[in-house]
C-alpha cells in the first residue's frame, strides 16, 4: 500500500510563445501547462495506486497564481495537493526547488515513494529529482521506463544508452520517469469538476524552515538561432561520404559509422 508523492512543475506552454523579428521571446500570450514528463510522473503514480492501493499526493513549488496547475494536477487523480508558493518562486534554481520540496516533504508528509518527471519541459536540467533524493537520503533511480512493486521491494527498468537496466531497491525511494513509461490519460469532465473539491495544502515561504530567497535572476530570454547551411547533397556516393564526414566532424554522429 504505497504512499506516493508525485512532483510536478507548472511551466510556460511553448506552443504559445510568439516569435517575431526581435531577439527576445514574447511571453505575453504564453499560457502555462503541466510540464510534459510530470504528466507521466502523475500517471505512473496513479497506475501504481490502482494496482497496489495506497495513496497519491501531488506536490509543486511555484507562484501563488499557479492555482490552475493545482487543479490540473488533481484532475489527473491525486487525492490531495501540496502547493508551496511565493511570488519569488517563479524562476528557482533547481537546487533550491529540491531544497524547498525536501523541507516540506520532511515536515508535512509521510511517503514510501516519490516520483518525478525525468526533466522539466522548460529547463530540462534533470536536477530536482536526484537532488531531492539526496537531501532526503533515499535511493534514487533515474530514466525509469517501468515500475513494479514486490512487497517492500521496488523493481524498476531504466532505459539507458546501451539497453535496459533492471534495478531493485527498497522503499522509501525516488524515481524519475521517462515519457515511455505510460501514456497519460486525458482527464474526463468529472475528473476536472471533482478536482476543485479536493484538499489543497498551501504552504507559504514563511512556513519553510530555511531561507529560500531565490539566487537566480532572469534578466532576459533570447531566441535560440538555428544556423542553416543550406547545403544540397545528392544521392551520389561522393555526396553521401561528404554528408557522413560533415556529421562526424561536427560530432553529430560517432566516428567509425562508415
Amino acid at each position: 500500500m504505497p504512499r506516493i508523492i508525485a512532483c510536478y512543475k507548472w511551466v510556460v506552454d511553448e506552443a504559445y510563445i510568439r516569435t517575431d523579428s526581435s531577439p527576445e521571446l514574447d511571453l505575453e500570450y504564453a499560457d502555462k501547462k503541466m510540464s510534459d514528463y510530470d504528466r507521466n510522473a502523475i500517471e505512473a503514480a496513479m497506475q501504481l495506486h490502482e494496482k497496489y492501493g495506497g495513496s497519491v499526493a501531488a506536490i509543486t513549488v511555484g507562484h501563488p497564481d499557479d492555482t490552475k496547475g493545482v487543479k490540473d494536477a488533481l484532475s489527473r487523480g491525486p487525492e490531495k495537493a501540496y502547493f508551496i508558493n511565493d511570488p519569488s518562486f517563479e524562476n528557482l534554481e533547481p537546487a533550491q526547488t529540491a531544497a524547498i520540496l525536501a523541507d516540506v516533504v520532511t515536515a508535512k508528509t509521510e511517503y514510501d515513494l516519490i516520483i518525478c518527471g525525468e526533466g522539466s519541459s522548460d529547463l530540462y536540467a534533470q536536477q530536482v529529482g536526484p537532488r531531492l533524493a539526496e537531501l532526503l537520503d533515499i535511493p534514487c533511480v533515474t530514466m525509469v521506463s517501468k515500475i513494479e512493486l514486490a512487497g517492500e521491494q521496488l523493481i524498476a527498468e531504466r532505459k539507458v544508452d546501451d539497453g535496459i537496466e533492471t534495478v531493485s531497491l527498497s522503499l522509501p525511494a525516488l524515481l524519475t520517469v521517462l515519457p515511455d513509461i505510460n501514456s497519460p490519460r486525458i482527464p474526463g469532465l468529472r475528473d476536472t469538476l471533482a478536482a476543485s473539491k479536493k484538499p489543497v495544502i498551501e504552504i507559504v515561504k514563511d512556513e519553510l524552515s530555511g531561507d529560500f530567497t531565490p539566487c537566480l535572476q532572469v534578466l532576459a530570454s533570447f531566441k535560440a538561432n538555428m544556423e542553416r547551411n543550406g547545403q544540397k547533397l545528392s544521392d551520389e556516393a561522393a555526396d553521401i561520404a561528404l554528408l557522413l564526414d560533415t556529421l562526424q566532424s561536427k560530432g553529430i554522429i560517432a566516428r567509425g559509422v562508415k
Binding site: 501547462k33 490552475k68 487543479k71 484532475s75 486525458i186 482527464p187 469532465l189
Partner: peptide, 18 residues
C-alpha cells in the same frame, strides 16, 4: 474560469487524439 480552461484543454486534447 480555471476549471473551464482545463475543460477546454482536455476536450481539445481528446479530439486531437481521437
Amino acid at each position: 474560469s480555471e476549471e473551464q480552461e482545463l475543460i477546454r484543454e482536455n476536450i481539445r486534447e481528446l479530439v486531437k487524439k481521437y
